[in-house]
Design a protein around this nucleic acid. Structure first.
Length: 233
DNA sequence: AGCACA
């Protein structure tokens, strides 16, 4: 089950993804999960018959991709273990950064319409899809994940979550209602001495990860998007 | 299983 003979690449190819997850949510969750390994330049996910259940995550460094391939191999993500390899070819977003990007024209796809050479380069900038639409998500919820902001390396997977940026009036019951809907939930622990933060315990780190993805950026008040990370060990 | 850039 070695990752095969594919040489290292800044982009990782992920398969065995849960095909029921909507594209935007999938991208957002992948971003949450993989941004701990480095800066993500782009995430590609298509729902076409040939490409559903797969995604490409483009990192700014090969080393980030390598760590992701090793450490997230078989990670349970939406109930399914991720199968991760290096991508076979260079992503367009990487080629663009290097200045070597040439709009594709060969290959079997001949049906490309006349394309203007003057592409607006900014046409696809954000790797962070906006607007999580699933149950718990409220409004835009990508608050803590702008590349280039704090960029503190996230902690390694842990069954305990560390929650920050809560409004001071948050109660344990409020957090329970949010987190108990996810499997494996055990308990919420508020830190009285430190308002605005909390710990939430799950049975294992796969389950804590699912809750983190689902509730990342959830706003108890409009100005308080939750910041969720794995607790440090 | 399936390697694209909607």
């Amino acid at each position: 089950m070695l990752s095969g003979d594919i040489p290292p690449n800044q982009t990782i190819y992920i398969k065995n993804l849960n095909e029921k997850i909507k594209k935007d949510e999938l991208k957002r969750s992948l971003y949450c999960l993989f941004s701990q390994y480095g800066r993500i330049l782009d995430i590609i996910a298509l729902k076409t018959p040939k490409l559903r259940g797969q995604a490409w995550v483009c990192f700014s460094e090969v080393t980030a991709a390598s760590n992701a391939v090793r450490q997230m191999q078989n990670f349970p993500f939406y109930e399914k273990p991720m199968r991760i390899q290096y991508a076979k070819t260079k992503s367009d977003c990487i080629a663009k950064e290097e200045g070597s990007f040439v709009p594709r024209e060969k290959k079997k796809k001949q049906e490309e319409k006349a394309e203007k050479k003057k592409y607006a380069d900014e046409s696809k900038q954000s790797a962070v899809p906006n607007g999580g639409t699933h149950g718990a998500s409220n409004g835009g919820s990508t608050a803590s994940f702008r590349p280039g902001s704090g960029a503190q390396e996230a902690a390694a997977p842990n069954n305990i979550l560390f929650i920050e940026n809560l409004p001071y009036e948050t109660t344990g019951r409020m957090l329970e209602m949010l987190f108990e809907q996810y499997p494996g939930f055990k308990e919420v622990r508020l830190i009285e001495a430190k308002p605005g933060i909390a710990f939430v315990d799950f049975e294992d780190d796969g389950q804590s990860s699912m809750a983190m993805q689902a509730l990342q950026g959830f706003k108890i008040t409009p100005q308080n998007p939750m910041i969720i990370n794995f607790a440090k060990k």
